[in-house]
């Protein structure tokens, strides 16, 4: 009987894993949950703190991922450009730091200081926010629109079409979406995909 235990465990793990393969989380148009997450300054940040803004750019990102690193500077620039327009960046690190030491709270504080982050960099310790949103990789962007206090999802996906070279970008997926949203137009491309690092689930 005991010899079947590993097999049963394996099948159970497979079951759990394939459940995660099914596309869950938000779709464009859904109302995003509020959260209260710890920021690198030890304070708590919630979406309701942004109720006077037009929206927010929620980006699931982290320290260790090469793709996230390549977008660091672009995320800083996005905040500089769009925070004043009413769309500030909220960065959230969903990774389990026991799997990636580089993604620990202390390392997040260090990186934000080095790079001069102008936006909150939050810890999703329970990973509940990432799971509810349906984030799978870093970086993974959710552009939210403030609908009278309710934040609805307006765009999900990539920042642009060239991770390697910001100067060679031809399609600015996120910026186009923000501009269309701000102009009261329909967001034409409201969902894109990109290669990224898997979120390190607990």
């Amino acid at each position: 009987m005991m010899k079947y235990v590993p097999v049963v465990l394996l099948v159970m793990t497979l079951g759990l894993m394939s459940a995660r393969d099914v596309a869950e989380g938000y779709q464009v148009g859904d109302v995003a949950m509020d959260f209260s997450l710890k920021n690198i300054d030890e304070g708590m940040v919630s979406l309701k703190d942004y109720s006077d803004k037009k929206g927010a750019i929620v980006i699931f990102t982290c320290n260790h991922c090469p793709y996230a690193k390549m977008y660091e500077q672009r995320i800083i620039e996005l905040d500089k450009k769009y925070a004043s327009m009413g769309y500030p960046v909220i960065a959230i690190n969903p990774n389990d730091p026991t799997q990636e030491a580089e993604d620990s709270f202390e390392e997040m504080q260090k990186r934000a200081k080095e790079k001069g982050y102008t936006f909150p960099y939050l810890v999703d310790g329970t990973q509940e926010v990432a799971k509810t949103y349906g984030a799978t990789r870093t970086p993974h962007v959710y552009l939210l629109k403030n609908d009278g206090g309710k934040f609805t999802v307006a765009y999900i996906g990539a920042i642009d079409d060239n991770h390697k070279d910001a100067k060679a970008v031809t399609k600015r997926y996120l910026e186009d979406a923000i501009q269309q949203l701000d102009a009261g137009k329909k967001v034409e491309t409201n969902f894109t995909k990109a290669i990224g690092c898997t979120i390190k689930w607990k």
Binding site: A23, D161, N162, G196, I199
Partner: peptide, 20 residues
């Protein structure tokens, strides 16, 4: 490649882009 969005669906429609 760079514009991953242009081909991820052609490889596999249910793939979010995370690896492995």
């Amino acid at each position: 490649e760079t514009d991953y969005n242009s081909f991820i669906d052609k490889i596999e429609p249910t793939w979010s882009g995370a690896i492995p």
